[in-house]
Simulated assay, not measured.
Amino acid sequence: MTTFAALVSGTGWHVADLLRAADDLDVKLHALPFAEVSAAVGGAASGRVSAGGVELDGVDGVVVRMMPPGSLEQVVFRMDALLRLSAVGVPVWNPPRAVEAAVDKYLTLSLIERRGLPIPATWAGQSAEQGLAAFEELGGDVVVKPLFGSEGRGIVRISDRELAWRCFHMLEHTASVLYLQRWIRHPGHDLRLFVLRGRVLGAMRRSAQGGEWRTNVAIGGRAEAWRPDPQAERLAVAAAAALGAEFAGVDLIEDLDRGGLVVLEVNAVPGWRALARVTGIDVAAALLDALRDAAR
């Protein structure tokens, strides 16, 4: 029997869905806390990477479901453990470098831009005064995002210079990175495409509701199934490939002022609850089945 491990942060709908899909596929799946990962170097157990009493270097594949919060040391060690597993031949999805790149919005867009893909004008830095200059260069209307973040949390739109001054100095004071994107005038919705091994498995359109401009389903956006056109598919697949992701949630948005689609973000640990609900696609089963094929 094929045996996989899913590294998780707590239990929830996605963990339950993976366990359900594993049972349907006759796959043994261990859901293991990422915070319990340990590794040995030297001695009889040298090279062994474990979590929750399971030797990860002995399973057929590992799914990174969620990276829990932690100190810099903890996060670096977790990534090191994933790299060790990859080095000894255990398929890790997503690969450590893809997870590392996707969690950092600046690095994500840097890699995507190098592939010649369209992205919003973006500035990142550490100085409030430099941020204010960038604010003006970006047209005085920007979206400020946490460098590390998801589900639309902590994102604000700023078009007032005094508010920008206050926000940027607060971020500088808390030793945060300032990450600014030019506000994109869009049709009131964005697009989420789920890419799996170089093809689009499914897609949805997310619309903002109740006067909210953010479209994320986690904060009240409305999702509906959407059939992507070839251009959107090519763009999503190329964005996932730029990060080296085996699967990814790629967010696109239409720029009404400049025309065409741009890549907003790539999530290498994407959720799929809304996508599965509106499309009827069994995303968890497709993911585990593809990993099983890769592990053979």
Rank of each mutant, 00 (worst) to 15 (best):
A98E: 00
L193E: 04
H186C: 09
E55F: 13
A248F: 03
P270F: 04
D255C: 04
A241G: 14
G116R: 09
F194M: 06
G149R: 01
A121H: 13
H30A: 06
S127D: 14
V76E: 12
A98D: 01
V142T: 07
G244D: 05
R205V: 01
A40E: 13
M79S: 08
G131S: 06
V88F: 12
A238G: 11
G58D: 15
N216V: 04
A223C: 08
I119D: 00
A87S: 15
E55D: 15
A121M: 11
E100Y: 13
A39H: 10
L19R: 13
T11K: 14
G131Y: 05
H173D: 11
S86R: 13
Q209S: 12
A175P: 02
M67F: 12
S159I: 02
H30S: 08
D251N: 02
L256M: 14
L25H: 03
G42I: 05
P120I: 07
N267Q: 10
A51Q: 01
L180R: 00
G198M: 03
G188P: 01
V99Q: 01
R157H: 07
L32E: 03
R273K: 15
E265W: 03
G280V: 11
M1S: 12
A5D: 04
A236V: 05
R84L: 12
D141W: 09
A22E: 05
I219C: 02
T215C: 10
V54G: 07
L138C: 11
T215R: 01
V37L: 09
A133Q: 14
D190E: 05
L83V: 11
R153A: 15
A101E: 02
E113L: 11
R292E: 01
